[in-house]
Amino acid sequence: MGKRWREAFAARTVSVLSPALLLAGWELLARAGLVDVRVFSSPSRILGTLIPALLSGELLYHTWVSVCRIVLGFAAGALPGVVLGLSMGLFPFVRAALQPMVAVTFPIPKLAIMPLILLVFGLGETSKVFTIAVGVFYLVLINTMAGVLNIDRIYLDVARSFGASRRDFYLTVALPGALPMIFAGFKLGMGTALLLIVAAELSAARAGVGYWIWRAYDMFDIERMFSALLMMSALGFVFSYALDVLERWVIPWKPPSSSAG
């Protein structure tokens, strides 16, 4: 036990120490005038802005606006992604019909269609939610389909030989069998959603973390910008943690992975 425990302790210590050292180094360099605080700021200056922004509720309000857009967009993209992905995985005919369209539209950068989205949906909430939904949709769709196609044929045979209905194929074979891949898609989709929210809030937004970042940039307020970046990082952490918890809850049959930790 001794050796393993010591190794684990050392690893834990290093992962706390290394960012702390980085921050300390940054602060020292800034104070010594070796980095330009007008561009790179310094940890103490950023904290000096972040804490009041949090306490006043201003930053939290903008975060809340972004979270709503992300959650709505994520759901609007993930749900059809799962349903279509399952259908394409289960039925060769559906796959043959939709695959070409997916293959052609998937590589288009989602940022490139933002002007089009703005034209169609206007400057309101819908355009932001839709941008995120599109990004999430493709990743979930493609992962879900791959998940179903990877299910061992034997399980489809079992379902067929026990007289499973079409609905049973979805609910007792395709969905549970593809769930691990679906979650991989969710996680990729969440990363994309965080990327897209900032871009979506660049134009025609009056609130949101992205909006906050662009405003800070306009006013060259580096500390406010960094505060928002910290908030984005926290958001990313919370969302991925939430997905992990959800995954463990919906996939209780997944053997615990040995590489964890």
Partner: peptide
């Protein structure tokens, strides 16, 4: 079935 065919889930 000859091979393992029970649903892991």
């Amino acid at each position: 079935f000859q091979e393992t065919s029970i649903f892991p889930w």
